[in-house]
Nucleic acid binder design. Structure first.
Lengths: 251, 251
DNA sequence: GTGACTTTGTGCCCGGGTTCACAAGTGACT
DNA sequence: AGTCACTTGTGAACCCGGGCACAAAGTCAC
């Protein structure tokens, strides 16, 4: 995040208009929403989805208060309200939020109403797992293309998708309307793959290889470093062991 | 930053400060190193490792300046120096850092000299991939145990490790000295698995299931939500497409 | 209609992370 | 020995997200 590109937080404060003709309410002005807030918004939406699925509104009238929703998600109620206020807040004071309307607003803001085809590059263990990961299509991210360089893998189906030659990335990505590219290759190939994806028109990349990727400024890169997560846990373990008993079992 | 940790309500969040100056740990000279800094320290160490491996010091005398190292990692030189200052800074003014000594210091601080056995729970696609992920053992995190509930999987080897019954978690974790648990199960089972791991003595957990996990206060939890990463990329995609309307809004 | 209660929206403060800029220390060169 | 170029270490300003608390606003009861 901070290591790769200076995130394109367009200078100034250009407000933005609703994507499509949002019929109800006045124009909701969307400022630059903090990333942490966007992450939580998805959590709110997920909880609301689950409530709607079960049909179990918290109340009979289909409203939910910030306290209740915050409790379900596990965040501070004030934070939730502030998060929602970025969207123009359509809550009703004294009552709460209309669950259905809030859900619709969140879907609109997060683009949850449409799908974003994904391509996975590198059909190793990790790539195959990602291709079969049910959480992706469930949240609007169907994996529509797999790429590799191994002739033994090209042409064979993995998780229901035929693996393509990475050299055909541009063609396949265009055909499948790929919007997001996922790099699951060994580290040495990651930069090369990123270049290929960018050349194929992909402007959003999720990389699993450690190390930095250099891409044009208009390409958004996110990195997930699995080993780093363990390393951070290990660091807390060290600190903990340092404070307590290093090797001793019980004093 | 990197991933989003949204479960501040329950478990070990970013920092748990005592409300008042209750003087918790009197003599803990443990300088509280910011998490972001720890993450970068590992990046520095990795780059130094690679340099040492290649034998290509930037200079003949085995020193490296903050500018050079920062350039290799892709961060601001001042940030790098401040990061290193948390460790007590063993650099030499006018010269730079002794690469070997710095590497040793980082290894010591990050605990990179020892290994932290890992257990993976949930031997599905993702769990299998994690069990075989070469980046884990390469950075000191050997996967020593696999757990599942499926009788068809229990007893069979995956990535060279025999899958154990989750009910034997306590036994196996103790035997293998497991320090870190990784939850790669479907969402509904995640909380149950977390409870089992905690009962087995694991105090560091990496979860891949969305949704919050509630654990005792002394257990450190990190979450990696793969679909969330895509969602954040999609949000930038929306914003980007929306910019098409360069309308001025309220002042 | 009025009063009391509930809940939202948000101004304000705070703590932490990032960046700048500069003093201080070190080796090299004359 | 003296000077100078170079690099580290860090104090201070800035920016941003989180949390508290309160006023505004709406509902319900009568």
């Amino acid at each position: 995040m901070s290591t790769i590109v200076a995130d394109g937080a367009t200078a100034g404060g250009p407000a933005r208009l609703p994507p499509i003709g949002a019929a109800p309410g006045p124009g909701l002005r969307l400022r630059t929403i903090p990333e942490a807030t966007v992450a939580r918004l998805t959590a709110y939406l997920r909880v609301l989805d689950r409530c709607a699925m079960v049909g179990a509104e918290l109340r009979g009238d289909g409203t939910i208060s910030s306290d209740e929703l915050a409790g379900l998600v596990g965040v501070n109620p004030a934070k939730l309200r502030k998060d929602l206020s970025y969207l123009g807040s359509h809550g009703t004071r004294g009552v709460g939020y209309d669950a259905a309307a809030l859900r619709s607003t969140l879907q609109q803001a997060l683009g949850a109403h449409e799908t974003y085809p994904v391509a996975v590059v590198g059909v190793g263990h990790l790539g195959s797992a990602l291709a079969a990961y049910p959480g992706f299509p469930a949240r609007g991210f169907p994996v529509r293309a797999l790429f590799d360089t191994d002739p033994l893998k090209i042409g064979r189906p993995v998780a229901g998708i035929t693996v393509s030659d990475i050299r055909e990335a541009a063609l396949v990505c265009r055909r499948e309307d790929v919007v997001i590219g996922v790099i699951a290759t060994p580290e040495p190939a990651a930069q090369r793959v990123a270049d290929v994806l960018v050349a194929a028109g992909v402007r959003s990349i999720l990389g699993f290889a450690p190390g930095q990727l250099t891409v044009p400024a208009d390409v958004e890169v996110r990195r997930v470093d699995l080993a780093l997560e363990l390393q951070l846990l290990a660091f807390h373990e060290i600190r903990r062991g340092d404070v307590a008993a290093p090797r001793q079992a019980v004093p």
